[in-house]
């Protein structure tokens, strides 16, 4: 039992289960899954589908945070890449052509590479603090997205593009497969190579890493590029969900949810060790929470407050120092993992 309790993912999983249980008690049909038109439907499946964009953004954010940085520009990158893809499709005579949709995606991804490289240069080469460097694109990027859409909301009617957001594959939402594929790819990229360890080393101790011969600039640069690419894919999903691109609202505040997901997942904001599995759980928790707010008919005025309270509770329950206050009378000065016999 104590081994289970000490597992990194114990508390996030517990929170997720608690949230799901609360929903199921409130509305017993919550856990039900139905087969309609050969597709599976249900609240739980909806949660996973809707959390796919956040999972993508948060996975990229995990790598950036592991290097000791932060990427505030992911929301804007979502908007820009979504806008570029939708704009290109809207200009085509046949919006349903698979070829033009693929071209649109390549354009969006290409632009994301450039934007990620921009962030990477500012942080890794010029040496601007990550929060400032990415703030530039966070603010300017919305303008860029507006510029692409010429201030309008671009509406498209393209069923291949729509598939990314709301389509199905093997009875399940297509978005789930996209998120799964990106997860597998990133996991392979970081854990099958030495990239993961080297990112953790740079984030854990930058100077020691430099003296061990790690070219940390390249590694940090790469992390921002990966983050931008993940954000772009999320941007496609978000715009495909509504078949339109709105430079103002697509991916708005998603960077904050992503940072939260990473932190809930156990990756330290100070950098170092990172955990994709935790991040995904964190994203699922946040989306479940959003769904809960709607499902329980909590009034829109109080929903943000409700969310905030739950998030605070989640963070506190994960903090060993806080739990100790309740399990013991006297708090110990250090947490268990810091205790070192010397």
């Amino acid at each position: 039992m104590s081994a289970l309790k000490n597992h990194r993912l114990f508390w996030p999983v517990l929170v997720l289960v608690a949230l799901l249980t609360a929903n199921a008690i409130y509305r017993p049909s919550f856990l039900a899954v139905q087969m309609r038109d050969g597709h599976l439907y249900g609240s739980v499946i909806d949660i996973v589908r809707l959390s796919a964009p956040l999972i993508l953004v948060a996975l990229g954010m995990t790598l950036v945070i592991a290097t000791g940085g932060i990427d505030l520009s992911v929301g804007s990158i979502c908007a820009i890449s979504g806008a570029v893809a939708c704009f290109y499709i809207s200009q085509q005579p046949d919006q349903n052509s698979l070829a033009s949709v693929l071209t649109a995606l390549v354009l969006g991804l290409g632009l994301a590479l450039v934007l990620g490289a921009w962030n990477g240069v500012l942080v890794a080469i010029i040496g601007i603090q990550p929060i400032i460097a990415t703030l530039i694109l966070m603010v300017a990027g919305r303008g860029l997205a507006q510029l692409i859409t010429e201030g309008q909301i671009i509406t498209i009617n393209s069923s291949p593009y729509k598939t990314i957001g709301v389509g199905h594959l093997l009875t399940l939402p297509f978005a789930i497969f996209v998120a799964l594929a990106v997860t597998v790819l990133l996991a392979a990229l970081t854990r099958r190579t030495a990239l993961g360890m080297i990112i953790e080393s740079v984030g854990g101790n930058a100077e020691a890493s430099r003296l061990a011969g790690i070219r940390s600039r390249r590694i940090i640069f790469l992390a921002y590029v990966i983050s931008a690419v993940c954000a772009a894919i999320a941007g496609f999903m978000l715009t495909a969900n509504v078949s339109s691109a709105d430079g103002n609202s697509a991916g708005l505040w998603i960077e904050l949810d992503a940072i939260l997901a990473v932190v809930i997942g156990g990756t330290s904001l100070a950098g170092g060790r990172f955990f994709f599995s935790g991040t995904i759980l964190g994203a699922l928790i946040i989306q479940t929470l959003t769904t809960t707010v709607y499902a329980m008919d909590i009034s829109p005025q109080t929903s943000l407050l409700f969310k905030a309270v739950v998030v605070i509770a989640v963070c506190l329950i994960q903090a060993p120092a806080f739990r100790d206050k309740f399990t013991r009378r006297k708090p110990t000065a250090v947490s268990q993992k810091e205790q070192v016999p010397a």
């Binding site: 030495a194 360890m197 953790e200 080393s201 854990g204 101790n205 890493s209 003296l211 061990a212 070219r215």
Partner: peptide
């Protein structure tokens, strides 16, 4: 010198891997 978060193994192979 060391990256405290990383394991003994990872710290030992760090320079070679780099």
């Amino acid at each position: 010198g060391l990256v405290g978060d990383l394991t003994v193994r990872e710290n030992i192979i760090l320079a070679m891997q780099a």
